[in-house]
């Protein structure tokens, strides 16, 4: 038997050209095992066709449906309603932070993608290089290529407290992309891209990026590992040793 919950979606609205934002409530009867994205789609389908939001794959591959749900960054297509509210409860839905708002829940991610491009973040990587240093690699399994974990959803940038205040900060996703590019030996990947005041040194170790990442990319770990690589490289340069890495 299907359970039905009555919930209220409180959605932050803002249309292009408007300077003011406002909250709008929508009541829904919904199966709590459906996802938050299902609820937002239902509001659009049956209550307000002017509501704008991004979505595509519905199975956590495209990274398009990132939103803030009750103040926490979530990939809404894999977030069951049951996990974020209760019967007769409320869900506050906001667009991601630290991105310009285009309309309602749609944010402008063009600069974010440009940063990933600059860092040469790979889309595909071999098993051994896609893994984090501490993850187990099975030597007897044939080397395969796989899609790397980052789905470019932007949740990490939204959760980052430094990205809140510093527009120039490259951000956790792009720095993770650089870390992965270096691991995959991408020809144009350059560690020096992270070695500036808007790069790895801007991070203040809140580790929110790792906490909200829906794909276990561990941006916080990767940023700190880039720092370690940079320190090692600079140390060698300062004291006349051989330069380590690129």
């Amino acid at each position: 038997m299907t359970t039905t919950w009555k919930i209220t979606l409180r959605i932050l609205r803002q249309k292009q050209g408007e300077t003011k934002t406002s909250w709008q409530d929508f009541s829904l009867d919904i199966d709590p095992d459906e996802t938050v994205l299902d609820a937002v789609e239902r509001v659009w389908a049956f209550q307000d066709r002017s509501l704008t939001f991004r979505h595509a794959c519905h199975h956590s591959t495209c990274g398009a449906c990132g939103m803030r749900v009750n103040n926490i960054e979530k990939l809404t297509c894999i977030t069951p309603i049951r996990s974020v509210t209760h019967n007769n409860g409320m869900l506050r839905i906001e667009p991601l932070r630290n991105f310009p708002i285009v309309s309602d829940l749609v944010v402008d991610v063009s600069h974010f993608f440009q940063e990933l491009e600059i860092m040469q973040a790979p889309a595909v990587s071999s098993n051994s290089t896609a893994n984090l240093d501490y993850e187990e690699v099975f030597p007897d399994v044939a080397e395969k290529e796989r899609l790397i974990d980052c789905i470019e959803c932007g949740l990490c940038v939204s959760a980052c407290p430094v990205a809140l205040t510093d527009e120039a900060y490259v951000g956790p996703a792009a720095l993770s992309g650089l870390h992965q590019a270096l691991a995959a030996n991408a020809l144009s990947a350059n560690l020096a891209l992270a070695d500036n005041h808007s790069g790895v040194w801007r991070c203040h170790s809140a580790f929110e990026c790792s906490a909200v990442c829906p794909s276990n990319v561990e941006p916080g770990y990767r940023i700190m590992d880039l720092r370690k690589k940079l320190m090692r490289k600079n140390f060698h340069q300062w004291f006349g040793g051989k330069e380590a890495g690129k």
Binding site: Q14, T19, T21, P95, L96, R97, N98, F99, P100, I101, V107, D108, P161, A163, L164, T165, D166, E167, Y169
Partner: peptide, 13 residues
């Protein structure tokens, strides 16, 4: 632009 990073957002820290 609304939503963009800004030093004024520091209270959200």
């Amino acid at each position: 632009m609304k939503g963009s990073p800004s030093p004024r957002n520091f209270l959200q820290w």
